[in-house]
Amino acid sequence: MTLDRTTTVRPAVTTDPGPRPPSRRVSPGQWASQSLTMAWRSIVQIKHNPSELLDLSIQPIMFVLLFTFVFGGAIGGSTDAYLQFALGGLIAQNALFLTIYTATGLATDLQKGTFDRFRSLPIARSAPLSGRILGDVLRQLWSLVVLLAVGVLLGFRITTSPLAVVAAFGLLVAFTLAFSWTSVLLGVLARDPEKVQIYGFTVLFPLTFASNAFAPTQTMPGWLQAWVSINPVTRMADALRGLLVGGPVAANAVATLLWGVAFAAVFGPLAVWALRTRT
């Protein structure tokens, strides 16, 4: 982010008022307004692409229904008991799937030249990215609301407090924002929005399914348990369960956030480097 707080020094004696030279940098206020405008764009895109709204709504609903009624009895003994266990996992999995939109959006902008258009404008260099991220947070919020609403309709009981639900959303956003850097890198490298889907799902499917999102860790073979117990999806799912239906939160939340820091530390610089090299 290039924010400049210094003011331009003007000559003490002005003989010719003339046109004022354009400013060198973007002010923090301008940066905020440009990011909001970019976020607006990211939301308006959904309006014109109803399939994305379906993805954002139908897909999570479908997952909840399938897992609860198809696997619920077998895994959890009863669909009710399973839903109490699985909804946290479904929320975590869905949140990770949503980060794909960061990659497809960016790949599309790069491919169509929209990104170049933005870069030729006198706006903050980071505004296209910060705006997209803000839009992605709103997508996360929407999906969380849909998932919780469907869950509650099917009998899911939030046994904690509204504050804990807010904390759950906060944790979700914090982790997915950090994790989004993998998606930014993917979007820059893929060059083609179609490819993003393939790459994305070959990574995200194993990552989210090889976790305790849908089944308890103890039921898995030992070699898998070793991975599942440290998988960030497991730790986030457990933290979300704790925040929604009670149970240990602190250790899992800290582990989730540490994973987030690790993802951001590795993929953040890589993504920025890729974006610089590419453009």
């Binding site: 764009r41 895109q45 014109h48 692409n49 902008d109 169509k112 030249g113 170049d116 258009r117 030729s120």
Partner: peptide, 8 residues
């Protein structure tokens, strides 16, 4: 290569 946003 400087394009418009086709979704808008």
């Amino acid at each position: 290569y400087a394009g418009v946003d086709e979704a808008l």
